Simulated scan of single mutants.
Amino acid sequence: MRFPRLPLVGLCSLVWATALVAQPAGPPSVIPHSVWQAKPPLGIPADAARRNKKAGDSLSFRELTVTVLQTLVDSSGEKPVDVARVRLATNGASEERVVREGSAFNWRGFHRAVVAIYGPGELGAGLVALEVATIASLPATIANASIAGGADMRLRIPHAISHVTLHHTGDSKPLTRADDPAQRLRNLQSWGASDRNWWDVPYHFLLDLDGRVFEGRDWHFQGETNTTYDPGGHFLISMIGNYDVQEPSVGQLEAIADLMAWALKANNLPIDRIGGHYNYAETGCPGKYLRRYLEDGTLRRMVQQRLNAR
């Protein structure tokens, strides 16, 4: 589903008072994925789940529970390899296995992939990226694979939206007028594929300095995270840049509110389903300068006024 192409509302020249004035119904116009992308999205739709888990945590999916018992380094070969000891359990049956990073196998109707095991010094250190799916929902090339593979073998996980969640990309440098936001997105897409095995950018929509909205991954499929929270059900809106060091403009807040209001309306959700990444994980995302507008109620008031006008 694509948003209708309507004109952007909210300009940086507006004074703060107008930020609380309800705007016309409808979402902001969206710059399609095909306009900015370096490559089309990858991924294969499947009945599946993907989560980052630390030792002692479990991933439950359908009748299967996978528990990460321990992460280790196997130094018996030519090169050290990260491994995880896991317990599999379903319908009264259970089994423990030691599995290598990047491996995949089938067990009692389920396909399981150890996409990554993040070690010391890596983003997500101590976490194991697990992907499980029903074998019946997979094409033979995936179902019979003994390797987890890269971004091209990742699964698109359908979900129903239950939350509208604000992020920032958290770049090392803030987004400036000299930067090309489309290039930032291409960089994020390439990095996500090569370093995190993501089939597309992790967010559903991303905003630049002018509040222009870029289409990210298809919002009917679950997004991604480098933390332990479950992005399933979250409509992910991300500000391009680092909002621990840069402040949002009025125009950006207007665009966020427009998009949040549309997402709530389209998914029949109450206003209290608006939140930030930090509400669901140990993180400062979306940055201190955006958090203030979530915590002081500004964004909720702006969104509510938009909903009242529809």
Rank of each mutant, 00 (worst) to 15 (best):
G251L: 00
Q252L: 06
D244Y: 05
N242F: 01
N242H: 09
M239P: 15
A263W: 00
N242V: 03
E254H: 13
Q252D: 07
L264H: 04
L236C: 09
L264A: 05
I240S: 14
K265Y: 06
I240H: 11
L236A: 06
S238C: 04
N267P: 15
A261Q: 11
S249A: 09
P248L: 03
N267W: 01
V250E: 11
D244E: 10
L264N: 05
M239A: 13
V250L: 10
N267T: 15
V245W: 00
A263S: 14
A257R: 02
I237C: 08
M260G: 07
P248K: 00
P248G: 07
W262V: 02
K265M: 08
L253P: 15
V245R: 10
L253R: 15
I237E: 01
L264M: 07
A261V: 06
E254C: 15
A255N: 11
E247F: 00
Q252V: 10
Q252W: 01
L253V: 13
A257K: 02
W262M: 09
A266K: 13
N242Q: 08
S238L: 01
I240D: 13
A263Y: 00
S249W: 00
G241A: 05
S238F: 00
A266H: 12
P248A: 03
I256P: 06
W262C: 11
L259G: 07
E254W: 05
E254I: 14
I240L: 15
K265N: 13
E254Y: 09
Y243P: 15
L259N: 05
I240G: 14
P248M: 01
L253I: 11
N267R: 12
I237H: 05
V250D: 12
V250C: 11
N242A: 04
E254A: 10
I256H: 05
V245Q: 11
M239T: 10
P248I: 06
G251Q: 05
L264Y: 02
E247S: 09
Y243M: 14
A261I: 05
A261G: 09
L264F: 02
W262P: 09
E247I: 00
V245N: 09
Y243G: 15
A263V: 12
G251H: 04
L236F: 01
G241W: 02
E247Y: 01
Q246G: 07
S249I: 03
A266S: 14
I240C: 12
Y243S: 14
S238E: 06
S238Q: 02
L259K: 04
P248S: 03
I240T: 14
I256D: 08
V250Q: 12
A266V: 02
A255F: 04
W262L: 08
L236W: 01
M239V: 12
L236Y: 02
W262N: 14
E254F: 12
V245H: 07
I256S: 05
N267K: 11
A266Q: 13
A261M: 08
D244K: 09
I256E: 08
N267I: 13
G251A: 04
Q246N: 05
A263D: 13
G241K: 02
